[in-house]
Amino acid sequence: MSVYIQNISTVVPEHSYDQAFLRNRMKEYIGDKEITQRIIHRIYSKSGINKRHTVIPDFNANGDPRFFFQEDGTLNVPTTGDRNKLYVQKAKQLFVKTARQTITENPSVNREDITHVITVSCTGFFAPEPGFEIIQKLGLPTSTQRFHLGFMGCFAAFPAMKMAKAFCESQPDAKVLIVCLELCSIHLQPSEVTDNLISASVFADGAAGVLISKNKPKSTASFELTQFTTSIAQESEKDMAWTIGDTGFDMILSTYVPDIIEANLKQSIQPLFANYQLTADDINHWALHPGGRAILDKVQKSFGLEEAQISPSRKVLADYGNMSSATILFVLKDLLNRPASKKQEAVLAMAFGPGLTIESGLLQKIQSS
């Protein structure tokens, strides 16, 4: 039974900042030593990011209310409780906004048609979980089944899509709403450790919603979900991880991550190629999670890809940065909206997260009739 991504909607907070501006702010408040300022300058300048969005209003001098940067010029370090309080306030609004927009933008689906809601987030917590909030605020049937995937990181949209595919295959009338939302910026740490500086230079806030069912859209392009596979790079769990500290979530994004991904790429996607007798040459588009510019560079080099094959990932990185689990859906939306050269095009989607885990999916981009 074929299962399709019907449509993808994306939402970002109203506040956005140029990467050069954020670089200078970090140099001003974090880089007391000249060597640290040089490291910050290089990391931000080489990131491939032009701007990022955030729910934090006070990176500008006149921002209000104050959260990180105080009126007297000092840097505040909010507690984990204060950060999660802000997460609850902002995330509830954005989860509902994204869910509403996703349904509204699909004329073939009504709210009462939704049978399952899957929410995804790793940057904060509240209960009842976000699916409850969506059902209540949008007036979905109280019988709507809801599931929440938490603390899985940048690859979490893939388990959500796998769940949706399984629901649709077992229940033909299922219509599954997925909402991925991350507010990474609330966990900014005033640390001179290089791994923390790298994290601060790439992560951002954003949300994306997806509607999945067995119905093939007739008037718009869609993605058919073909097959997924998972791989874990051995002895790499310390290179991409995080834990809950007293002043937010302590995120680790090691400088070794691009090399680890490169070393495990080909074996991680081999099951997909083997099952369908494919090679890298058969893939028209590579929808890669832009965890950082170096990651995209490594994948492109490993498979000898043309720039056009990964341009949606480059564009999302430049325009939004790394929004953890939501990012790959921004990439897929960009790809879905681009003109196709033929009726059906093979897409290999990939994301990387804690573990170090590599999630891959083989999709078919199908043009409308």
Rank of each mutant, 00 (worst) to 15 (best):
S191T: 14
E192Y: 00
E192M: 08
V193M: 05
S201H: 08
V202D: 03
V202E: 03
V202C: 06
A204Q: 02
A204I: 01
G206D: 06
G206N: 03
A208F: 10
A208W: 10
G209K: 14
V210K: 05
L211H: 03
S213R: 07
S213G: 09
N215P: 00
K216R: 15
K216D: 07
K218I: 14
S219W: 01
S219A: 12
T220H: 10
S222L: 01
Q227F: 07
Q227R: 15
F228I: 06
F228E: 08
T229L: 07
T230V: 07
S231Y: 14
A233C: 02
Q234I: 05
E237C: 08
E237F: 07
K238Y: 03
D239W: 00
M240K: 10
W242I: 03
T243G: 04
I244V: 09
T247D: 11
T247L: 03
G248T: 13
F249A: 03
D250W: 02
M251D: 00
M251I: 07
I252C: 11
I252P: 02
I252W: 02
S254N: 12
S254I: 11
T255W: 02
Y256M: 07
Y256C: 01
Y256Q: 13
P258M: 10
P258Q: 09
P258K: 08
D259Y: 09
D259V: 01
I260Q: 05
I261F: 04
E262N: 11
E262Y: 05
E262S: 13
A263I: 00
L265N: 07
K266S: 11
Q267V: 08
Q267E: 07
Q267C: 00
Q270D: 15
P271K: 06
P271V: 04
L272M: 13
F273L: 15
F273T: 12
A274M: 02
N275I: 01
Y276S: 14
Y276N: 14
Y276W: 13
Q277D: 15
Q277Y: 14
L278D: 13
T279I: 06
